[in-house]
Design a protein around this nucleic acid. Structure first.
Lengths: 205, 205
DNA sequence: CTGATACGGGTCGGTTCCGTATCGAAAAGG
DNA sequence: CCTTTTCGATACGGAACCGACCCGTATCAG
């Protein structure tokens, strides 16, 4: 009954005839998209021809895989997810500084350059909005857990408005990284100052 | 010595010959730009031809006034500044809620739609960056004064990191308005919750 | 080997936009 | 009336891009 040659049970493997598609082409195309975006091109300014030229690929090779620019963009952006930072569990402050500092600091340095380009698209296209939410949701979940852990451990107030606190921590870092909101602020020390500000509050006591 | 006909001393008025330029055309063009942007067009997707059509104006009328799209955009965006909110001076919390709630809430409802489109430009063009900074600087100054006033009145801690506190107040509101960062959050109650969160801090005590 | 499909590259018609030029009409002053 | 300048409108050459199609070659299964 057991078939020795059954190595993968991945759905069905009907072995389509003809030359198989090049995995290198797939990667080269996606990489070209991300590179060009990171170099400053806007999404809508990106032409299929420029992508093909950069990837060293014929236009037809792109159209064989994606129906058009939109589908390609969504696919490319999905592969941009960075690695999640790993909270140490030592102290809540330390973990929050880590998470806040990681905002816009993915392993892929192109991500930081690309993010601003997405803002208009997120407002225009529900598809892009969904992609964006999928990218940030794991990070949001991570921060949510750190906050809940802090509440349980007694480091944080018990009556936290957790969703708002996440916005308090994320928003300042994001506007600074995305549009240099205040050119005077020093980006390196900012995560710590944000976390301390939110921890302590500003009301006199 | 006094000339009765000297009504304006605006530089020199050499009274140029020929048909004077239509003020209505100037306004119509700028309005068309803002309208089209507010309807979802990106800056670079905006064509002079579309602007002219929308304004009911010939293309030449635009090129007679501006050297190209960039100059027109900068000019149009400059006229977008909204009215500054007026702090009441009743309490620091009240004023901060007012200022935070006003973020992205200009008199011109188009401003809120247009802001996200500027994010990529601000990162690309120093000119746009300057225009953006000029628009927000007065608001930042207003918040700075409210905070300083709170410190003097004793409502706020004396050792405030004022620039960071401004980011704490502005960032969360901005990312929510610009890219619906957390779709669950209720935008109406958000300003109050942000201000309260920053006022009280999150550390247990 | 054959048949099928992939590849990089190129061509082609069609669309859109730019920036300039030109038109007749309109609006000013001389 | 004449000149000058602007008006809205339209036409132009040039450029960029889309998407379809095709070329000659490469790579697989049988």
């Amino acid at each position: 009954m057991g078939r020795m040659s059954d190595m993968t049970s991945a759905a069905d493997a009907p072995r389509p005839p003809g030359r198989p598609r090049s995995v290198r082409a797939d990667e080269a195309i996606v990489e070209a998209v991300l590179d060009l975006l990171a170099e400053g091109s806007t999404i809508e300014a990106l032409s299929i021809e420029a992508i093909a030229a950069r990837a060293g690929v014929g236009k037809a090779t792109i159209y064989r895989r994606w129906s058009g620019k939109d589908a390609l963009m969504l696919d490319a952006l999905r592969r941009l997810k960075g690695v999640l930072p790993q909270p140490t569990g030592h102290s809540v402050r330390e973990d929050l500084v880590l998470l806040v500092g990681a905002i816009g600091h993915n392993v892929d340095p192109r991500a930081a350059k690309i993010m601003p380009c997405l803002v208009p698209e997120v407002n225009r296209s529900p598809d892009h909005f969904r992609v964006y939410q999928n990218i940030i949701e794991p990070r949001r979940q991570l921060m949510r857990e750190v906050l809940r852990w802090g509440v349980r451990s007694g480091e944080l107030r018990a009556d936290l408005d957790i969703e708002v606190v996440m916005a308090l921590l994320t928003g300042p870092m994001l506007i600074q990284r995305m549009l240099r909101w205040n050119p005077e602020l020093d980006d390196d020390s900012l995560p710590g100052r944000i976390v301390d500000g939110v921890l302590d509050g500003i009301r006199a006591r």
